[in-house]
Lab assay of single mutants.
Amino acid sequence: GKMTGIVKWFNADKGFAFITPDDGSKDVFVHFSAIQNDGYKSLDEGQKVSFTIESGAKGPAAGNVTSL
Rank of each mutant, 00 (worst) to 15 (best):
V49I: 06
A57T: 13
T20I: 08
G39Y: 07
D44A: 13
G15F: 04
D13L: 09
D22P: 01
L43P: 03
N64Q: 08
K26N: 08
V28T: 04
K48L: 08
T52A: 06
I53G: 04
D27M: 07
S25N: 05
F16Q: 03
K2H: 10
K2R: 12
F32S: 05
P21A: 02
H31W: 12
T52F: 13
K48C: 12
G1W: 06
G15M: 10
N11G: 03
Q36P: 05
W9G: 03
T66M: 02
D13G: 06
G1C: 15
G63F: 02
T4F: 06
M3V: 08
S25F: 03
F29V: 11
D23Q: 03
T4R: 05
D22M: 07
V7M: 02
K26Y: 07
F29S: 04
G59P: 09
I35R: 00
V49G: 00
N64L: 10
I6E: 03
S67V: 04
E45K: 12
D44H: 15
E54D: 10
K8S: 04
W9S: 06
I6V: 13
S42I: 09
T52M: 10
S55A: 12
N64I: 13
D23E: 03
M3Q: 09
F18V: 14
Q36C: 14
K41Y: 10
V7L: 10
H31N: 13
F29I: 12
A17T: 01
I19G: 00
T52G: 04
L43G: 01
Q36A: 12
K14L: 14
A34T: 09
K41S: 11
A61L: 09
L43M: 08
T4K: 03
L68C: 15
P21T: 04
Y40I: 12
D44Q: 14
G1A: 11
S33A: 08
V65W: 01
G46F: 04
F32A: 07
F32K: 06
F32V: 13
V49C: 03
D22E: 07
T66H: 14
K14N: 08
D23S: 03
L68Y: 01
S67G: 15
I19C: 01
G63A: 14
Q47E: 06
L43N: 01
S55F: 12
A34G: 07
L68G: 15
Q36D: 11
T52N: 08
N37T: 13
G46M: 03
V49E: 00
G39R: 04
S25M: 03
A17K: 00
F32P: 02
I35G: 03
N11A: 06
D27K: 02
D23L: 02
A17Y: 09
K26T: 10
F10K: 07
K41C: 15
G5W: 01
Y40E: 13
T20D: 01
I19V: 07
F18I: 14
F16G: 04
G63D: 13
F18K: 10
W9Y: 14
F16T: 04
T20L: 05
N64T: 08
G39W: 07
S33V: 05
K41P: 11
S67E: 15
F16A: 02
F16L: 14
M3Y: 06
Q36W: 09
V7P: 00
S33P: 05
S67A: 05
K2S: 11
E54M: 09
M3W: 05
H31L: 10
E45C: 15
P60K: 08
M3H: 07
D13S: 08
G1E: 11
G15E: 08
A57L: 11
D44K: 14
A17C: 04
V65S: 06
G15D: 04
V7Q: 00
F51C: 02
H31E: 10
K58V: 13
T52P: 04
S67W: 02
T66V: 14
S42G: 10
F10S: 12
G15H: 06
P60E: 13
G1N: 11
G46W: 03
G39H: 13
W9A: 04
G56I: 10
I6G: 01
I6F: 05
A62H: 09
D38F: 12
D27N: 06
E54H: 07
G46A: 02
A62S: 10
V49F: 01
I53L: 10
V49P: 00
S25Q: 04
S55I: 14
F29Q: 05
F18G: 03
S67T: 02
F18N: 03
V7A: 00
T4G: 04
A57S: 11
D38T: 07
I53S: 06
A61N: 13
P60I: 08
A62N: 10
N37H: 09
D23W: 03
G63W: 01
A12L: 08
I53E: 03
L43A: 01
T52E: 08
I6W: 04
D13K: 07
D13M: 06
T20H: 06
A34V: 10
A62Q: 12
V65A: 05
K14V: 09
K8D: 01
D13F: 05
T52W: 12
S25K: 03
S33N: 07
V65F: 02
W9N: 04
D23Y: 03
F16N: 01
D23A: 02
T66L: 02
I35N: 03
S42W: 13
G39P: 08
G59A: 08
A17I: 06
K2C: 15
D13Q: 08
T52I: 12
G46C: 07
Q36S: 09
G59C: 15
A34N: 11
A61D: 13
G5H: 00
P60Q: 11
G24I: 01
W9L: 04
G15T: 09
M3P: 02
M3C: 07
K48N: 05
K8M: 05
A12P: 15
G63N: 09
D23V: 03
K26W: 05
V28H: 03
I19T: 00
F51T: 00
F10M: 11
I19A: 00
Q47R: 06
G56P: 12
V30D: 01
V30T: 01
K2P: 09
E54V: 10
G46P: 01
L68A: 15
G5R: 00
V7Y: 00
G46E: 01
A57F: 07
G5A: 01
Q47H: 07
D38N: 12
T52Y: 10
I35L: 09
T4S: 07
A34S: 12
K8T: 04
I53H: 06
Y40T: 09
F32C: 13
S50Y: 08
T66C: 15
K48R: 14
E45L: 15
G5N: 00
A62Y: 07
G39T: 06
F29G: 02
V49L: 02
K14C: 15
D27W: 04
K2Y: 10
D22C: 14
K58G: 14
Y40K: 09
G63C: 15
M3D: 02
I35S: 03
S25W: 02
A57D: 13
S25T: 08
A61G: 12
T66G: 15
F32D: 02
H31D: 14
T4A: 03
K14G: 08
V65N: 15
E45N: 10
V7N: 00
F10H: 03
A12N: 07
K48M: 07
H31V: 06
S33L: 04
D27Q: 04
G56H: 12
A62M: 09
D44R: 14
T52H: 08
Y40M: 10
I6H: 05
